[in-house]
Design a binder for these strands. Structure first.
Lengths: 144, 144
DNA sequence: TATAAATAGGATAAAATTATCCGAAATAAA
DNA sequence: TTTATTTCGGATAATTTTATCCTATTTATA
């Protein structure tokens, strides 16, 4: 469904958000440990998220990654997914046709529409806040 | 969503089904042309589909790939997808956790449930027959 | 039985994704 | 201003996925 990079990106954002609530910046090292991901690879993904203005980084001593406390509730899963995997999950054809739309549908076009729309709705309506709070309360987990 | 191999596999099955209705066997060459895929790679996927008893192959002169006419309506997309991509699309965690279930859910576990169930329902209830008939009638297309 | 036409399958190669390493640049604090 | 800390970014490597090539094997027909 999502690439590894995207999975790491989502989990990283959640962990960063949790710490940002408490005014704490976190390093790629801490993040990688907490979400069980390769550190250097995770760092690359964090860079991409910074470039897409989803999270912020502060260089130098006492630096790290954070996300604006006010933004946490406004950041949706869709933004993170789009930043890392692009929008093929929304717009791409289920069978990989270059051109696939109502006028020239692939064999599963209509069948997929419902699934895709539900996925899209879910991604666009799930906020980082919601996911972070569930981790904090122990209702969900970032690693096995 | 699906791997390239799986996309090719689904399209190949549809084309084979269409021809099997008319008692015609088809070669990897014809298939690849019709579904716009690399021929040798497609041939490998056909072999896998044969091993999974989804399609049949006949070696030698006048041979080719076919699917039993009576089976076409009973073959579901789910079988093809499972044969090629495995069942990670059903059972795998959306965020890649080794262990992710009701008791130890990843952050998006519940959110994903609906999407995954709908996808599963769709794959299990869409028959090769239905897809093949839509291609025959010109309602959908195997390539752009 | 010989021949031509097909699939089967092993060995590689190319491309994309995932992952690692290391030095440069930035920054806070001593 | 120096130092320690930390992100940035380029280069490279490993792995997986996708793709190609070539030979062996099978089979219908002449």
């Amino acid at each position: 469904m999502f690439s590894k990079a995207c999975e790491y990106g989502i989990k990283a954002c959640i962990f960063i958000a949790i710490n940002s609530y408490e005014g704490k910046r976190v390093s790629p090292k801490e993040i990688a440990e907490e979400i069980n991901s390769p550190q250097a690879f995770t760092a690359k993904i964090l860079q991409a998220l910074v470039r897409h203005n989803i999270i912020e980084s502060v260089k130098g001593a006492y630096g790290g990654f954070e996300v604006s406390k006010n933004e946490i509730k406004h950041i949706k899963l869709a933004q993170i997914v789009k930043a890392i995997d692009g929008d093929s999950i929304y717009n791409g054809c289920g069978l990989g046709l270059e051109k696939c739309d109502e006028n020239h549908p692939c064999p599963v076009h209509d069948k997929f529409k419902g699934v895709r729309d539900e996925l899209k709705y879910m991604l666009e309506n799930t906020s980082l806040e919601e996911l972070a709070l569930n981790i904090k309360s122990g209702a969900s987990f970032l690693k096995a």
